[in-house]
Design a protein around this nucleic acid. Structure first.
Lengths: 146, 146
DNA sequence: CTACATGCAAATCCTTTGCATCCAC
DNA sequence: GTGGATGCAAAGGATTTGCATGTAG
């Protein structure tokens, strides 16, 4: 389920109302393969439809609605805002630099051994879909070494 | 370096000024082995010293100062606030159940392979001192299966 | 003494909410 | 037609900042 009409159908089938605003937010999320915050989504819509402005409150309400429908992930990358992405997109984790806030996407495979260990040793099912790992990037590490 | 006077010495040696407020924040952080947010720290101080109130702005400034001195970690656990903890050599990770909030402590060794991979493949130094992994515990998983 | 830390209040940023109006179904 | 969605403005919570005052060194 990755294209627009599939998603629309899925939502309709669950009795959700499909407004132009909701379609536009979905469209932006589908057009991006990385995480977006509410403001970025609003700007994307404004750029694509220069004569339309969707209210921030509506963006936020739409995102919560999509999150509650399990279609969108809501993640904190340690910045002062949440970021959102369609769940149907490939899993990926993030390295976030404590100092310069740079974000690097990480091969999801890297956490598979951890998943297995946690399931085996602790009988716990970890939700490792979007994990943020904080630390220092190479540039900032070098900078500090001085 | 885990007791109060050691920390104080360390900071003094670096030319930092040690005020009563800073000592109190340090004291609270040393008295807790889990992550605290600014408000909780303020309340702890108020409880311990009923006639003193440290301004929130001072708490935040102190925490940034300790973070910049690499004595305290500043982490986002996906809530709307940051949490802080002394960077100690006693690492511990936690499994947190999304449903029943149960918390289990996890062998820190479990993340060592991840640390190595991240350092090797991404030239990034992860700060894996207090990682929270969310998911479902065995009880809640069984409950959902019904 | 002096540079730096504090308290206080106001400002900021992201996000949520109340309410009248609007529109998808 | 009607319940749910929108826009607007105002409220909210966490955090930051400006500035006068206080104090650690």
């Amino acid at each position: 389920m990755s294209n627009h009409s599939d998603l629309v159908q899925h939502l309709r089938a669950r009795g959700h109302r499909l407004t132009p605003q909701r379609r536009m937010v979905l469209e932006v999320l589908q057009g991006s393969d990385h995480h977006l915050n509410a403001e970025t989504i609003a700007r994307s819509i404004a750029r694509r439809y220069p004569n339309i402005a969707v209210d921030p409150a509506t963006i936020y309400r739409t995102l919560k609605w999509l999150r509650d429908a399990d279609l969108v992930s809501e993640t904190s990358l340690g910045q002062n805002h949440m970021v959102y992405a369609l769940i149907s997109h490939h899993r990926h984790h993030h390295l976030v630099c404590d100092q310069c806030q740079m974000v690097v996407e990480v091969d999801p495979q890297i956490l598979e051994p951890v998943r297995n260990e946690i399931e085996r040793r602790y009988d716990f099912t970890p939700r490792l879909d979007h994990v943020a790992i904080f630390g220092l990037c190479n540039r900032c590490r070098a900078e500090r070494a001085e």
